Computed example of a mutant assay.
Amino acid sequence: MKNSLEYLDKIKIIHFHTKWSLSSKNLVNVTKILSIFYKKKIIFLRVDIEKNKDLIYKFNIKYIPTLIIFKNGIEKYRITKIFCLKMIYKKINEIIFKI
């Protein structure tokens, strides 16, 4: 088992979704591509809000799907309407490299 300390400084991206949302399904493909590209730099998580309704309020989720990018446990960016691979890639790099 890996030491959890090695994950503290990693960027985490949480995809809040539902199984019935077509946009959520499309975003899964985008996050799969990104997870391959950023294999050791970013942790990707998917949260089905129908199974985790308490997280809707905790993270103030108003749109499905929602993608939240965290760095050092702090929300750095939230994407709720446009899920373009190029746009998400650009935003991730801005956060990683502080462009």
Rank of each mutant, 00 (worst) to 15 (best):
S21T: 00
F70S: 03
E75C: 15
F44T: 02
V30H: 08
K39G: 10
C84R: 01
V47D: 08
Y38F: 12
I64D: 03
I96S: 02
K40M: 11
I13V: 03
D48V: 05
K10S: 14
G73E: 01
K51Y: 15
L67C: 13
K91R: 08
I11M: 11
G73A: 02
C84I: 09
I92D: 05
E94N: 07
R46Y: 14
K19W: 11
I95L: 05
S35L: 04
V28R: 11
L55S: 06
I92N: 02
I56E: 09
I74S: 09
T18L: 00
K71F: 06
I74W: 03
Y63P: 00
K40L: 12
I11N: 00
I56N: 06
I68R: 03
I33M: 04
K58N: 15
T18G: 09
K39C: 08
K25T: 15
E75K: 13
I79G: 06
I36F: 14
W20L: 10
I36A: 08
N60V: 03
H15L: 09
H15V: 00
R78C: 01
N3H: 07
F70I: 04
L67Y: 03
T80M: 13
L85A: 04
K76M: 11
K19N: 09
S21Y: 02
I68C: 05
L27Q: 07
I14L: 05
I82R: 07
M1Y: 13
L22C: 07
K25A: 14
R46F: 14
K91E: 13
N60Q: 05
F97Q: 06
P65S: 08
N3W: 05
I43C: 06
F16K: 00
L5G: 01
F97L: 07
V47Q: 02
I49E: 03
I56Q: 06
S21P: 02
D54P: 01
R46A: 14
I74Q: 09
D48R: 02
K40C: 14
F37R: 10
S35R: 01
R46I: 15
E50F: 01
F37V: 12
P65I: 06
I14N: 03
